[in-house]
Amino acid sequence: MDQSDVGRLLRDAGTNAALAWLLVAGAVVVSMANLALGQQLWALFAFGVALVGAFPALARRSPRAMPPWEVLGLAAMPLLGRSVGNGVVADVTTYLAVAAVALLVAVELDVFTAVEMNYRFAVLFVVVTTMAAAGVWAVVRWVADIYLGTGFVVDERTLMLEFVASTVAGVGAGVVFELYFRRVARGRERLDLEVDL
Results as ranks from 00 to 15, higher is better:
6 V>K: 15
122 A>M: 05
149 G>V: 00
17 A>P: 01
82 R>D: 00
86 N>Q: 15
62 S>L: 09
36 A>T: 01
57 A>M: 05
128 V>G: 13
47 F>W: 02
79 L>M: 11
67 P>A: 15
151 G>V: 11
138 A>W: 11
70 E>L: 05
28 V>Y: 07
17 A>V: 03
31 S>I: 00
44 L>W: 05
122 A>N: 04
143 V>N: 00
34 N>R: 15
7 G>Y: 14
57 A>R: 04
141 R>F: 05
46 A>P: 08
140 V>S: 12
38 G>D: 08
45 F>H: 03
107 V>R: 02
143 V>A: 07
124 L>I: 10
41 L>H: 14
107 V>T: 01
29 V>Y: 05
9 L>P: 04
112 F>D: 01
80 L>G: 07
36 A>G: 10
120 R>T: 01
133 A>S: 09
103 L>N: 06
76 A>F: 10
140 V>K: 13
129 T>P: 06
80 L>N: 01
122 A>D: 08
8 R>E: 09
81 G>Y: 03
22 L>N: 11
31 S>T: 00
80 L>E: 03
49 V>A: 13
24 V>Q: 14
40 Q>I: 06
76 A>T: 15
81 G>Q: 04
53 G>E: 13
48 G>A: 10
98 V>I: 08
121 F>T: 11
106 A>H: 02
21 W>K: 03
144 A>D: 10
96 L>E: 05
150 T>Y: 04
131 M>L: 08
128 V>C: 13
96 L>Q: 08
39 Q>K: 08
43 A>P: 03
13 A>D: 11
111 V>A: 05
25 A>P: 08
73 G>R: 09
105 V>Y: 01
129 T>E: 03
154 V>Y: 07
59 A>Y: 11
58 L>R: 10
42 W>P: 00
70 E>P: 05
97 A>P: 04
143 V>K: 00
112 F>I: 01
13 A>Y: 12
34 N>Q: 11
34 N>A: 12
114 A>V: 00
71 V>K: 05
25 A>K: 06
32 M>Y: 14
107 V>N: 01
9 L>V: 02
144 A>N: 04
86 N>A: 09
118 N>F: 14
51 L>R: 04
102 A>H: 07
23 L>R: 12
24 V>F: 08
31 S>P: 08
81 G>K: 03
81 G>P: 00
138 A>D: 11
91 D>M: 09
40 Q>Y: 15
18 A>M: 07
16 N>H: 13
74 L>G: 09
34 N>M: 09
61 R>H: 13
118 N>D: 06
64 R>Y: 06
47 F>P: 03
146 I>D: 11
74 L>I: 13
30 V>C: 15
44 L>K: 01
83 S>L: 13
14 G>W: 14
62 S>E: 15
97 A>G: 14
79 L>S: 04
59 A>V: 08
79 L>C: 10
79 L>T: 01
116 E>S: 05
36 A>D: 08
93 T>V: 15
111 V>R: 03
145 D>N: 04
86 N>G: 14
101 V>T: 12
41 L>D: 12
18 A>W: 10
87 G>C: 07
